[in-house]
Design a binder for these strands. Structure first.
Lengths: 96, 96
DNA sequence: AATTATTATAGCGTATATGCCATAAATGTT
DNA sequence: AACATTTATGGCATATACGCTATAATAATT
C-alpha cells in the first residue's frame, strides 16, 4: 500500500516532528464519520457518490489510511446534512 | 504562484466536479482561525512555531491559498487550546 | 519618518491526498 | 451454502499540501 509511513524520517527545522499524521485525531474522526454516516443511513458508496468523492477515499478515511483535506470533510458534511463541527465532535488529547 | 487553479479541468468518473477546493468553507475557516488566533493572542509565527507548522502554511490557510489537511487543523487546535469544532464553528451553505 | 514586527507572496522539492480501476474481504440476505 | 451488498485493499497517475528559504508588503512602535 501507499500509506505505510506514519512516522517522519527527515529532520525538520524549528522543532522535532514526531508524526506526519495525527493518528489520534484521525482515528477519532474515522469513528465519528462512521457513526454519523450510519446514523444517517448512508453506505460508503452512497456518501461517496453524492459527495463527489471516490469510494476509495471514503474507505481510506474510515480506515485511517488518509489524512483528508478540510474540503473533503466539507463535502461529506454537506451530503450528510450535518455541521462540520458535528464530524469533529470529539476531544483531542493535549499533545499527540 | 502555485495555487492558481481553483477549478477542475479534467473529466471525472461518476459526476461532474465543479471545484477542487471548497472556496466557501475555506474562507470561513480562514476567518475563524484568524479570529480565534487573535483572541488567543498568537501571532502567525508563534502559532506556527508551537504547532510545528511553517509560517508559510499558516499564512496560506489564512489567505485561502491552501486546503489544509485535518491533521494540520488538529495541531493548530491543540496549540490554541480550543476544540477542533471551535475552528469549524460556522455554517456551510447547502452546496458550494 | 525610521525601525521593528507581523503578515503575505514566491519558488522549489518531496510527500501525500485523491481520482481511477480492479479485486478481495467481510457482512448481510435468502 | 450461494448470492448480493458493502467495505477494504492495491497500484498507478496527477494535483496539491507543506516544508524550506527568501523577500516583499503591511501594520505597529518609537
Amino acid at each position: 500500500m501507499l500509506l505505510c509511513s506514519f512516522y517522519d524520517v527527515g529532520k525538520q527545522k524549528h522543532t522535532e516532528r514526531q508524526k506526519i499524521y495525527d493518528k489520534e485525531g484521525l482515528i477519532l474522526l474515522a469513528k465519528q464519520l462512521k457513526e454519523v454516516r450510519a446514523k444517517k443511513g448512508f453506505t460508503q458508496e452512497k456518501l461517496a457518490y453524492e459527495s463527489d468523492i471516490t469510494l476509495s477515499q471514503i474507505a481510506r478515511i474510515e480506515t485511517v489510511k488518509s489524512n483528508p483535506t478540510v474540503s473533503t470533510i466539507f463535502k461529506i458534511a454537506r451530503t450528510l446534512n450535518v455541521s462540520v463541527s458535528e464530524l469533529f465532535n470529539f476531544k483531542l488529547g493535549p499533545n499527540q
